[in-house]
Design a protein around this nucleic acid. Structure first.
Length: 625
RNA sequence: CGGGGCGUGGCUCAGCCUGGUAGAGCACCUGGUUCGGGACCAGGGGGUCGGAGGUUCAAAUCCUCUCGCCCCGACCA
């Protein structure tokens, strides 16, 4: 590509409406423009990257035995009414009517469409398993679209659905998908964790999210050394068990107008953890008393799961008074267990003396013993984990971090197949319901996540795998004939070799070109200028000359990576698509599993590389992977 | 939906409080000089200030409504 003819509108300044680094850089690098809130045009440069991510997804899916298809974006409402999601999905669902006033939805996800297809064509266990996927634009009318393409209303997504005879078959596909997903994100150069997640309204129990670690992420993630990782909505935790305390008699205390945990704790001179926080919820018509330690937050996602209700709501002051006999702020489980379904958080220990509300105005109880005063109470995990809590598996301290959700895999079970009547006949001739799984990757979001992780002060730093171009030729001055000729010759050579190359043939000042190149972030930059040419490096007409230059470049490159503080080895490599015989790769020795990425990273030391190139012109035939 | 903020040329923003009929930088066009980190000189084109209504002799500026956008919250596959 010749930059003089390319549509890459770069911007010198940050767009006013962007907050996230990835959003700013995508707009500034000429990849993205906004059309309306949460609706974006992906420009040529952005589309090249997006397509590469999609292609990686495609390759990994196909390798895992999946088949790509194209589903309609528009779906009749009837299908959604069958599964109940027409009502349940809420306002996020884009609804639409045609000229005959028939109702349609713009697909936010495609379980209905695919299940309809499968129920019409799959009859036998011999047809299973089946794993289909689509890469398409999806629509979700987000209440608050934000962060550019990170949380858009219209976005590109890969959605996959698998169909099985039984749970065992599903489990096999699920594990394979998990591996395939890990491969996709690894190839994109991302650092990520796989976390246990809340299944939300989709239902089903087993599910995992793929989280790209980034401070700008919207999700909170707990993780521990043993590999346990979970979102804040589902993270389990242990706390150190405390020594039993001597039994003391239950007493009432007057706590005038002390309602909050802080007020009561300081009034009675005890730690907030000494208190039990009692919250009254309604799940439909059923009232529930949820009791958690005073120093913790209730996790509504956990409560929702325990109750099997999508959205429990907090009771009002009047309701609390009617149910407990005491005003808001003085509620406690003692004496209520028979009257009100009471659930005690699992981390509340027996053998300790707690403070609770007394279910009467200005009264709290002290020396409350779980085993004596709240006997035989229902127990469940209700409290939200926090930093420093102990891992439920290995008992080590958990770390708290942030992540961007780029993928989510679910074992769906029978939810959709049952509702829509997707059945098959087993070997005995018995009709059974198809077992399903679903697997999604936010393609456009993944692009943003990569930028979020891989950028520097001057712009994007693409990993080789999804870079819009692999080589950026920057002639310093197009009006200097030798420079122009050298650049053109190298360009022609690389194009002929099938290298994805962009040539900055614009009649711009060098500074402007460098800034744009920094922004766009092509992994390899070849700067061609008068200085370099004068130093005697040029195109090599014979092997001897080339060999000499090659060795010098090898040294120069080694110097670059040394100066970057990287440990690396130089290995003989396959010449691949570029052709030629002799070539070497510089591999950074990485201790993690991110080997592929590490080499890309080394690959991407564009700034230092460029300085070297100012003094030594890159010989053609040279190959960097 | 609640709270806050913003809409002025392609971009970033000033002007608004204290009404007097629109400005800067960048970008763009022409000519020239320049050319290894967002050049310089000269000349030039482009906006009626998101929209509607109102107050006023006069509105970008004040008032009302409305639309759009951003942030925080609530919500959420």
């Amino acid at each position: 590509m010749r930059q003089s003819q390319a549509f890459i509108p770069t911007l010198k300044e940050d767009p006013a409406d962007a907050e996230l680094i990835s959003h700013k850089l995508m707009v500034r690098a000429g990849m993205l423009r906004k059309l309306a809130a949460g609706i974006y045009t992906i420009l040529p440069l952005g589309w090249r990257v997006t397509r590469k991510v999609a292609q990686i997804v495609r390759e990994e899916m196909d390798r895992a035995g999946c088949q790509e298809l194209l589903l309609p974006i528009l779906m009749p409402a009837e299908l959604w009414k069958e599964t109940g999601r027409w009502e349940k999905y809420g306002k996020e669902l884009f609804r639409q009517k045609d000229r005959h006033d028939r109702e349609y939805v713009l697909g936010p996800t495609h379980e209905e469409a695919i299940t309809d297809l499968v129920r019409n064509h799959i009859r036998s266990y011999r047809d299973l398993p089946l794993n289909l996927y689509q890469i398409q634009t999806k629509f979700r009318d987000e209440i608050r679209p934000r962060f550019g393409v990170m949380r858009a209303r219209e976005f590109l997504m890969k959605d996959g659905y698998s169909f099985h005879t039984d749970e065992a078959q599903l489990a096999e596909a699920y594990d394979r998908m998990r591996e395939a997903y890990a491969a996709v994100f690894r190839r994109c150069g991302l650092e990520f964790v796989i976390v246990e997640a809340d299944s939300g309204a989709i239902g089903g129990d087993v599910n995992h999210e793929f989280m790209v670690t980034a401070d700008s992420g919207e999700s909170l993630i707990f993780s521990s050394q043993c590999g346990y990782a979970a979102t804040s909505e589902s993270a389990k935790f242990k706390i150190a068990s405390l020594a039993a305390e001597p039994v003391a008699a239950l007493e009432t205390r007057s706590t005038p107008s002390r309602k909050t945990v802080e007020e009561v704790a300081s009034f009675l001179s005890v730690e907030p953890a000494r208190l039990l926080k009692s919250l009254v919820f309604f799940a439909g018509d059923e009232a529930i008393l949820a009791v958690i330690p005073g120093d913790r937050e209730l996790n509504e996602a956990k409560l929702s799961r325990v109750l099997g209700h999508p959205a429990p709501r907090l009771a009002t002051g009047e309701e609390i008074e009617r149910l407990t006999g005491g005003p808001l702020g003085f509620t406690g489980p003692v004496g209520l267990t028979g009257k009100l379904r009471t659930i005690l958080d699992v981390c509340i220990q027996e053998g300790r003396n707690f403070v609770t509300g007394g279910n009467a105005r200005d009264v709290h109880l002290v020396n409350v013993r779980v085993e004596r005063d709240i006997p035989a109470v229902e127990r469940a995990d209700l409290a939200t984990a926090r930093e420093g809590d102990l891992c439920p598996r290995c008992g080590d301290r958990m770390r708290l971090g942030r992540g961007i959700e780029v993928g989510h895999i679910f074992k769906l079970g029978l939810k959709y197949s049952q509702a829509m009547g997707a059945r098959y006949l087993d070997a005995e001739g018995t009709e059974r319901i198809i077992v399903m799984g679903t697997y999604g990757i936010g393609i456009t979001r993944t692009v943003a996540a990569v930028i979020e992780q891989l950028h520097d002060a001057n712009g994007i730093v693409w990993p080789h795998s999804i870079a819009p171009y692999h080589v950026h030729i920057v002639p310093v001055n197009m009006n200097h004939d030798p420079t122009r000729e050298a650049a053109e010759a190298l360009y022609a050579r690389l194009v002929a070799s099938g290298v994805e190359v962009i040539l900055d043939d614009r009649d711009e000042r060098p500074g402007a070109k460098f800034k744009d190149a920094d922004l766009i972030g092509v992994p390899l930059r070849v700067t061609i200028g008068e200085k370099g040419l004068k130093d005697g490096y040029s195109f090599h007409t014979d092997e001897a000359q080339l060999a000499e230059a090659y060795d010098r470049m090898r040294e120069a490159y080694a110097a670059v990576f040394r100066r970057c503080g990287l440990e690396f080895v130089i290995v003989e490599a396959d010449s691949g698509a570029i052709g030629g015989d002799v070539n070497h790769e510089f591999m950074v020795t990485a201790q993690t599993s991110r080997q592929d990425f590490a080499s890309d990273r080394a690959n991407s030391c564009g700034l230092s590389f460029q300085r070297i190139c100012g003094e030594a012109f890159t010989p053609p035939g040279w190959n960097f992977r």
